[in-house]
Structure formats: C-alpha cells, structure tokens
C-alpha cells in the first residue's frame, strides 16, 4: 500500500513540481546569479562584475528616487484601500436595503484590468474636460486646467487614488468575511450595556477584526509592491521619474536600457523586500492564530 502511495505521489507531483521549478524557482535563483553579471539581453556572453551592480545601486539617484516613491506608494496603497474598505464593510454589515447591489458596485473595479483602470483615470485627470477639472470648474474656477498626471507634484498621488479605487473592493470583502465571524450576541450585550455605536465599533468590532486587518495589510503591501501596469499606462514612471517605483525602475533598466544584469540586482532588492513582508505576515498570522484561535 505504502509503496503504491509513493508511486502515486511521484506520478501526480512530477508535472506540477517540474513546471513550477523550471519556470518559477529556477528563474528566482538565477536572478541572483545574473545580478552579478553585465548581461545585456542579447549577447550570449557576459562578464562577472562581482558586487559592482549592487555598488551602483548606492550611487544611482534614480534608484534612490524609486525607493522613496515605492515607500510613498506602498504606504498610501496600504492606508487608503484599508480604511475605505473597512468603512464600507462596516456600513454594509448592517442589513441595509440593496446590500448585494452595493457590494457588486464596490467590488466591480477588481475585475477590470489595471490597463483599463488606468485608461479610465487618465480621462478623469484629463486637464481640459476630465471629470475632476470639470468639477473644479463648476465649483467656480472656470480656467482651471491643471494637468494632474503631467506634474511631478501630483502624478504619483493621482495614480495612488486610481489604484485605491480598484483595491478597495478587495479589503472590503475580506473585512466583510471577518465581520461574519463576530458573534452577534456580543454586539447585543454591548447594546444592552448601553455602549454607543462608536464605542461598539472602536472597542469591540475593530479589535475583533485584527485577523482580517493583518490579511488586508499584508495583501495591500504585496499587491502594491507588484503594482506596475497602472503606473506604466498612466505615467510610465514620469514626469521626471516622480512616479518611478522599484518595479517600474527594474523594468526600465532591464528592458528599455537592456541593462539586464543591473535590472536583476534591482529585482533582488525587490525580492528581499517581499520576503521581509511575507516573513512578518506569517509571524503575525501565527500570533493572531494564538490569540484568536
């Protein structure tokens, strides 16, 4: 019996593990390898540079900009969708009329591609007739034609808003799933004891939602670290690299300048950041499991 099981394990796992190893694990490891080289994307040959690519990172002003932008991007992409998602989930948790339709509306953007979302928001930010400036004009500023995406001051934040619009639905459903696990008796007790709505939310509901918050926060960070398409279409990292994130920078160095060795070095940094987040996430998840069972 056991020998048969062993045979079946091998038979069933062979293909998935082979595909995963060849197309995910191996490239991941060889990314480290190429980060020590100066491969240009076309030639067969390349030289070993040792740690020179990583030394270059320290002096690359664009890399520094990308780190700053990535930090802003991740922090905002963390706070905005999480708060709006929580707010919407709290509103929707009470049995409102039409809750199903509302949920569909808030969740809908998640099934759109980042390219389409970017396209939509390019129109909103369009200086002459975009929705945003149309409103500003109606509010009594008829000559207003600020180009939101073409100014270094606003480009990154404009994309963040578009990104948050799409991501809010995800944190909303995770919070909604979390809310269903709060026993209604507990809330009834609060009501009987005379707690106000705010006290109930701040002192009972939000603390009990901690497991969901851990998931939402980790997921938002990971997703924003991956975020590339929407920046590519809305700003391309510009103007003047003001919205250039690590993922964008890596793409530009590797596939625009064909510095694939240097690009690999940037991707190694990206990998280490992701690894840190995931490590903290799993640890928090275990802690939460211990507390909340």
């Amino acid at each position: 019996m056991e020998s048969q099981n062993r045979l079946w394990r091998v038979l069933l796992l062979a293909l998935p593990i082979l595909v995963f190893s060849v197309l995910v694990i191996w490239p991941l490891l060889s990314s480290f390898y190429y980060s020590f080289t100066n491969w240009n994307g076309f030639n067969r040959d390349y030289e070993f540079l040792g740690l020179r690519n990583f030394a270059k990172i320290w002096t690359d002003r664009l890399f520094f900009d990308a780190i700053v932008n990535t930090t802003i991007w991740m922090a905002a992409a963390l706070v905005l969708p999480t708060l709006t998602g929580l707010f919407l989930a709290l509103l929707l948790d009470r049995q409102v009329r039409g809750a199903r339709i509302f949920k569909t509306v808030f969740y809908l953007p998640i099934c759109l591609s980042a390219i389409v979302v970017g396209q939509i928001w390019i129109w909103i930010y369009q200086p002459d007739w975009g929705l945003l400036n149309t409103f500003v004009k109606l509010a009594g500023n008829p000559d207003f034609n600020y180009a939101w995406l073409a100014r270094p001051d606003s480009a990154l934040f404009a994309v963040i808003v578009a990104w948050s619009w799409q991501q809010t639905g995800l944190s909303m459903v995770i919070y909604l799933a979390g809310l269903t696990s709060i026993p209604s008796e507990m809330l009834e007790v609060c009501e009987i004891e005379g707690a106000t709505v705010w006290q109930r939310i701040w002192r009972v509901v939000i603390p009990l939602l901690t497991p969901s918050t851990v998931v939402v926060v980790a997921l938002s960070m990971i997703n924003s670290l991956k975020g590339f398409d929407i920046l590519y279409i809305m700003t391309g990292g510009g103007p003047f690299n003001s919205s250039d994130t690590l993922a964008m920078h890596m793409y530009n160095e590797s596939f625009k300048k064909y510095l694939m060795g240097y690009g690999s070095a940037i991707s190694v940094v990206l990998f280490l950041i992701a690894l840190t987040i995931i490590g903290v996430y799993f640890r928090q998840l275990r802690k939460v499991d211990e507390i909340y069972g």
Partner: peptide
C-alpha cells in the same frame, strides 16, 4: 514543499523577469 509552492503567490513577477526572458530567448 506546500509552503514553498504557495509562497510563489506573493512574489513580484519582476523577480523572475530577466532569467525567463533569457530562457525563452
């Protein structure tokens, strides 16, 4: 093994971009 496979979900695709490009090239 399961954990290794599942964690593949979390990594930015940029990390495997260059080697895959070289492979398919």
């Amino acid at each position: 093994l399961f954990l290794i496979v599942v964690s593949g979900m979390f990594f930015p695709p940029q990390v495997i971009l260059v080697p895959l490009f070289r492979l398919f090239n």
